[in-house]
Amino acid sequence: MNAGPAMNALPAIGDATAIGDAPTTKVVPGATPLLRVRGLSVALPDFSAPRGLLGLSRAPLRPILQGVDMELSCGECLGLVGESGSGKTTLGRALLRLVAPTAGRIEFDGRDIAHETEAAMRPLRARMQMIFQDPLSSLNPRRTVGDAVVQPLRAYGRLGTRDEARRAAAMLLEQVALPAAFASRYPHELSGGQRQRVGIARAIALSPDLVVADEIVSGLDVSTQATILLLLRELRARLGLAIVFITHDLSVVRVLCDRIAVMREGRIVEQGTTADVFAAPRDHYTRELLDAVPLPDVERGWLDPLATAA
């Protein structure tokens, strides 16, 4: 499949032939990575900690990320896995500077953005986008779908006339295999999978280089999940998107990601290509996570109490 950058000359989305193809990437060997993270630490106030006599002193900082190193090449998809509380969501947000790091460097396209001002971040923000877990709470219920997907373009002054907005909305919806007529609908009229497509359409509106997707298929049915995964794989190949895909489901990672980073307690405990890590996990925690995924095979003893209970 041709991974050209021209959005207009793309093949129709959703045709069955594209589905079985292996993901193609635009990664150029030896090129500067899109993201290069070194020693990234984030600490957030811990409001559950006891706070002095009258509770007036400031909440102490609790370390969430502790010295994270990672890289992401252009067009690459990295699966970020771990349990709740492992720091994967915080890392995803820190990469987009949605939370401020306490230490470390985040180089985006060669430039350290860890401590940039919001004004300096603004032009960069067009190049980095986020898809949220729950599309219903991330879409304005009073805005039509068409309005929602072109909002990023409007925010960056890339839309002129109403007609332009209409055409942009139709094109974005087509990218995620939704009919153009959906532009006039409201989020509550859509199914979960359709809403998630709208979330994706909005994220790709500005043709970003990087998209962080946080648990975006967790709440979906099997069949919807499969179509969303394949849509992402296709968009990625077509638009040359780099994706940080945050999930707790290792089976999903296998479908989409080139590389995987396993997080535990604010650190990355194992990193590698998806194939390598799944074939021979080096860290025992990765092994534990893999074993805990219930594969649809009948297996006696999978639920037996642990023999090591003594």
Partner: peptide, 11 residues
């Protein structure tokens, strides 16, 4: 067939 599995290739 629509259920992803980590022990099978993406295809």
């Amino acid at each position: 067939a629509a259920t992803p599995r980590h022990d099978r290739p993406a295809e």
